[in-house]
Simulated scan of single mutants.
Amino acid sequence: MIGRVYKWLFGLGRSTLPVRDDGPVQTVQVRLSSRELLDAREVLIAYGLISAPPPGADMLLVCGSGDRSDSIVVAHNHKKYRYRGAQSGEAGLHNGVAGSTILLQANGDVLITPGSGKVVVQGTVTAKDFITETGVKLSDHTHGGVKAGSDTTSGPQG
């Protein structure tokens, strides 16, 4: 009896198409079984997070009234593209398709790994201190070859 109740209150399926994200609520088509295909299921996502999982993602549905046609997606995961290797206490954002990750590491560091190798910032970046990969501290470094007038200097020196 209890198993039957859970079966109608929850559903586990897979997305069959890309999510639709052009309206007020994101929706997705979910296949629960060979005979059960639900279209335009609303997806609840935590405020501030952006997520559009690719087709084939696992979808957990809640059917509040016990009717599958009256269900919403409350969680999703993609086995192929999920982030692997997180340590206890770590959190972050991960795009497995592109390979980009922002990881709040257990030791307090923030690791940004862009899949394209490029980080794009629209706006101003303010940093208390900035040290380049080559060890040059931008707030306190020198330049060689300083001359008067419109001459240029050599590159920064640590």
Rank of each mutant, 00 (worst) to 15 (best):
M1C: 08
G3W: 11
G3V: 09
W8R: 12
W8Y: 12
W8E: 13
G11L: 04
G11E: 03
G13I: 05
S15H: 01
S15D: 03
T16Y: 02
P18Y: 12
R20Y: 07
G23T: 11
V25P: 03
T27K: 12
T27A: 06
V28M: 15
V30A: 00
V30S: 02
R31K: 14
L32S: 01
S33C: 07
E36D: 15
L37Q: 11
V43C: 11
I45M: 10
A46C: 09
G48V: 08
S51V: 04
A52M: 06
P54Y: 04
G56I: 11
G56L: 06
A57I: 02
G64E: 15
G64A: 10
D67Q: 12
R68V: 12
S69D: 14
D70N: 07
D70H: 06
I72Q: 09
V73Y: 05
N77W: 10
H78N: 15
K79I: 05
Y81K: 13
R82V: 10
G85K: 03
Q87A: 12
E90Q: 07
E90H: 02
E90K: 03
A91Y: 12
G92H: 06
N95G: 02
N95Y: 04
V97T: 08
V97Y: 05
V97K: 11
S100W: 01
S100A: 02
T101R: 00
I102F: 04
L103P: 00
L103G: 02
A106F: 09
G108V: 10
G108M: 11
V110L: 15
I112D: 08
I112P: 04
P114N: 03
S116P: 06
S116C: 04
G117D: 08
V119S: 02
V120A: 01
V120N: 00
V120F: 01
V121I: 14
V121Y: 01
Q122K: 11
Q122Y: 04
T126Q: 13
A127F: 06
I131F: 00
G135E: 00
G135P: 01
V136Y: 00
L138K: 07
S139Y: 09
D140K: 09
H141K: 09
H141C: 07
H143M: 13
G144C: 03
G145S: 13
A148Y: 10
G149Y: 04
S150C: 07
S150K: 12
D151P: 04
P156Q: 05
P156N: 07
Q157A: 09
Q157V: 14
